[in-house]
Design a protein around this nucleic acid. Structure first.
Lengths: 228, 228
DNA sequence: AATTATAATAATGTCGACATTATGTAGTTA
DNA sequence: TAACTACATAATGTCGACATTATTATAATT
């Protein structure tokens, strides 16, 4: 292993896993644009590693469908399409409904308590959303994850995570100007309140209906912004 | 690229993708046992490639959760557990129900026709199952895939494929002696007939119930064979 | 001028080598 | 005998170098 890095890094997983995180971030946030060629020389330069860890990270992103590989012509960022966006959002909604249905069946006191805790942390940050949108996104995500985790199925939660990432990419790419329309935001916050109520009342049908709308309405918004 | 292989291989994807297929097969069929250490030297020997393509293939299997990586101690085959097996089968059943629900909504004439065609090819092979279990498995899989494809969602079908593989691993590992109990087999074939009828009648509830039982009854069988 | 042929340039995919880290073993001490 | 240290062995993770293949630019021919 090379010298310069061993001393600097505390938790030294291999380089590939470090690169994986950064590269994924760069694709999700649109630093590397959809369809863009991923030149090895460029990646080497940017992440300061050799080719081997890079190819390992790219191999993993290949499975997650964030990059594509062309026979002997290297890697590209996975292209985007309106059609794929809609498919991802529809599937995501289906999976989330599934998680919520199971969570309502299986969730215990701690599940309920954790939802309320995460909801609180999210709401506390509602005013500062302008200040740090990414921190709000983190808390928003934590809230929804707390709900889904009640399903107690690692396998299902893994699927959910993967779909969240793919959806996040479209959100980041198409809502480039962080449009936080106050009306939309208030509607969203209302969704959250109604959702928590439905969950605590174990009203599965209502909760599923709310989450469905909550997840699909952004996709309809995105759909307008993008002609394909 | 090395010399010896370039001439021999017709469709020359990179070595990593070739190794991926073989290595996955070896894990799914239990040639490499759960939890087993995957020595680079051994893998190099077996697949006749260098370390780089191997690590790329392993990186992909890492995402698919068929191998695990230990900090600086290389790769192992992903361990198995009764708990994980049950989780995978439950999730798989949920996803399959989802696919079937959507397929019944969206499926057209061609969808119906393809199901019948695949059912026919499967039934034709029913007697020869002893002769070539893997060919029967192929046709069985094609039948169920034909049904699921009616959902018209690439994203969802991808999830389905991944879960199928994980489940297949447990099936291969625990049903080591290819136990084709005639009674069970006939029940299965009956499931298939009833399922096709329900699909053509667009009876979503019934179809979901049948597929659920069809997928979960093996898991109950496996469950008995394995103490954890 | 358009199209093909040819050369040069660039980028990929692979291996071998090397430094780092883990594992196993013998030897020493209490 | 148990436990700890020191050493030897083995395995991993990374880079640089090289052969193969693709891409671009240039020349040649119709």
């Amino acid at each position: 292993m090379p010298l310069s890095k061993t001393n600097n890094l505390v938790s030294c997983d291999n380089f590939a896993s470090q690169v994986l995180i950064q590269l994924k971030q760069d694709i999700l946030t649109g630093f590397f644009k959809p369809g863009e060629k991923l030149l090895m020389a460029r990646l080497k330069e940017r992440y300061q590693v050799g080719i081997s860890p890079l190819r390992e990270a790219l191999s993993q992103l290949l499975v997650e469908q964030l990059v594509i590989v062309e026979n002997q012509r290297g890697f590209r960022v996975h292209p985007i399409s309106k059609q794929e966006m809609l498919d991802i959002y529809e599937t995501r909604a289906s999976i989330e409904r599934l998680c919520i249905g199971l969570a309502i069946e299986k969730g215990d006191d701690e599940w309920e308590a954790n939802i309320l805790a995460c909801a609180h942390k999210m709401n506390k940050f509602a005013e500062q959303i302008e200040k740090s949108p990414q921190e709000w996104e983190l808390r928003h995500q934590a809230f929804h994850t707390a709900i889904a985790e009640g399903c107690l199925s690692p396998t299902l939660l893994q699927v959910r995570r993967s779909l969240y990432e793919k959806a996040a990419r479209y959100r980041n790419l198409w809502l480039n100007t962080n449009m936080v329309d106050p009306k939309t935001f208030d509607d969203n916050q209302n969704d959250h309140r109604l959702l928590v109520d439905a969950l605590l009342n174990r009203d599965s049908a209502l909760a599923k209906q709310i989450i469905n709308e909550h997840l699909l309405s952004p996709s309809r918004l995105l759909s307008k912004n993008f002609q394909d």
